[in-house]
Nucleic acid binder design. Structure first.
Lengths: 343, 343
DNA sequence: GACTTGACTGGACTCGTGTCCAAAGAGTAG
DNA sequence: CTACTCTTTGGACACGAGTCCAGTCAAGTC
């Protein structure tokens, strides 16, 4: 149909293809009248270059692939938006996909992205090792790789992370200072199934304030709302339920909260709730939820910045940027009941 | 670096490029030993085809561009996820962008997408006309266009929509049946600035139950959380505030709710709240919010399906699929106070 | 008028894949 | 052994843009 190429423009203007594209890229080389003839042809034919063809020839696509955990989770949605804006400002396109927290899907997505010969990848890797070797290969082929939110243990790529360990310590210290001793987190660390920093640090953070994790509170699980819901129902029905729940993500906090409502437990009267992420609903529930907020936009800008400067040829050491979480105290945490303590 | 092309594979296997790619595409044409030699070369070099080059030659990219309002809004995030899954299942890639509800940005995004020579577009268009002419051009060039969630008035493209008019009627009837007369919606219809179906139907729906819209409740605005917050503060401070608020999107409901909390108004005691969209937090606040839920996944599947069947060459009439909203009654709507009525 | 200089323009080739047609090889029948 | 078929393989060209180098042409110099 009306899909016109540079040769069509050239023919229409009565010049060669070379001259036609010079009109677009290096207009100062052309005589004014030639330039005008070509530009008239461009507007007449509504010519728009095929970026793929240019990219093919140039050997770079000016596209960055982004693989996130789940676009439905607001943390990632916000991350995606800011990444997109920043990359675009740097002259790059963003190709967005999700791995649904599965390393196997990482592999599928990365393959697809490499098929488009993306210049760089910003990756929130899935838990697991399936994609590891493939990432190395991409790296060797010159694809710049940045990790966000989660690091493959020992991976040599730069990263942008929350200070998960620090945040966990801060959270545990805060709950401990209120008098809590029996604290449960949504998700136990597991090197294969759930290898992330928050649950990893939890026992250490507890030990540092002289507490230990109750084994019956520990469960390896993915951090979905439904899993957190099931988990909360179960632990709160134990003979000695926790006096505080520590949700490792905003999505899991929603599950905890729903379960607590269903059990008719009052927050923070019967049980305190502390969560990562600062979603707007957390301010709307009664009581409002005390949270450890992540500086999402800063993190996105950092990741985009690292990628863009690497792509512009700046040589730097792989850098691991760590951002602190901010404890925002609202109403969902209080001292535990005395009866609960003495039980 | 190690970026290998089909010619590298061919050389490594001692065959021609044609033979090498036949090994990948039409292996039954080759002698078993030749096939094996090529496949060995493929694995040895970790060859993966450059999809852009193939697309360039084939004249189609097997990519669908998706332009949504805002990925941060859960409705769109969910829509994006399901669209992506469905398109992938149909063998297409998805290129996701957002227009932030601005028609001018539509144009930018569409240009970028066309630069990639996408085969089809699924578009939640921004309010306004800037992109209209460009869409027509794309259409003439053979790009299949589907609209979701919002239709450009009179546009000849197929669409997937919520039955906005029906949902508004249902909502108004419900509030009226509880005894409400002074009902306010977040956002007044405006042909230029806010031309969508929900606010458009509102006066009609009110008239049908014998009510009329109070002029002092009307305000043209974008449906963001912050705008709804400001709006709610203002209308609730009027001498005769509404007895029911009808939030046209989930995001604006959050703004309404926050404002009502700040004003210390009880829901539904002082004012009822009804909202579009069924976000998970709406079940967690007290009282839980009564909503008109949209069948997001069904809508996404319908849009993807229309696109895929059009791309596979099936000729059909432009179809406008409409999905009903579901009223889910929870606790945020009740009969207005008598004092409010008589005032 | 022959020559240099510079501004301007065009042709041939490249990127990696796909398509088409021709050529070479293997096998069969007369 | 030749003719013919069928299988298997290779070469040339195309897609649309970008790069390099060579060519044309007018103006200026001696």
């Amino acid at each position: 149909m009306g899909v016109s190429s540079i040769t069509d423009v050239a023919r229409h203007a009565g010049v060669s293809a070379t001259t036609a594209k010079r009109a677009l890229k290096e207009p100062q080389l052309l005589r004014p009248d030639t330039l005008e003839r070509v530009m008239n042809a461009v507007t007449a034919l509504h010519y728009e270059p095929d970026l793929r063809a240019g990219a093919l020839r140039a050997g770079q696509s000016r596209t960055v692939g982004v693989v996130l955990g789940s676009v439905v989770e607001p943390f990632f949605a916000q991350l995606a938006r800011t990444l997109g804006q920043e990359l675009r400002r740097g002259g790059y396109n963003m190709l967005l996909t999700e791995n649904e927290y599965q390393s196997a899907q990482d592999l599928t997505e990365l393959r697809l992205l490499y098929g488009q010969r993306i210049d760089a990848i910003i990756l929130r890797s899935g838990y697991g090792e399936e994609s590891r070797e493939y990432l190395e290969r991409l790296h060797k082929r010159g694809v710049f790789i940045t990790q966000v939110d989660y690091c493959l243990p020992g991976a040599p790529y730069p990263s942008v992370m929350l200070d998960n360990a620090g945040a966990m310590r801060q959270g545990v210290r805060y709950l401990h200072s209120l008098g809590h001793q029996r604290i449960a987190t949504t998700g136990k660390y597991d090197p294969q199934l759930h290898p992330e920093g928050r649950s990893y640090t939890f026992p250490t953070a507890m030990a540092e304030v002289g507490l230990s994790v109750q084994p019956e509170y520990e469960r390896v699980m993915f951090l979905t709302e439904d899993n957190a819901y099931d988990y909360t129902l179960d632990v709160m029905r134990l003979p000695h339920p926790p006096t505080a729940l520590f949700a490792l993500t905003g999505a899991s906090a929603a599950g905890c909260y729903r379960a607590l409502q269903e059990l008719n437990l009052s927050v923070p009267g019967d049980v305190s709730l502390l969560s990562f992420d600062n979603y707007s609903w957390m301010n709307l529930v009664t009581p409002a939820i005390t949270v450890l907020a992540q500086p999402v936009d800063q993190m996105a800008r950092a990741a985009a910045g690292m990628t863009l400067s690497a792509l512009s040829g700046v040589q730097t050491q792989p850098e691991n940027q760590v951002f602190p979480a901010e404890l925002i105290v609202r109403g969902s945490c209080a001292a535990p009941k005395l009866t609960a303590l003495t039980r």
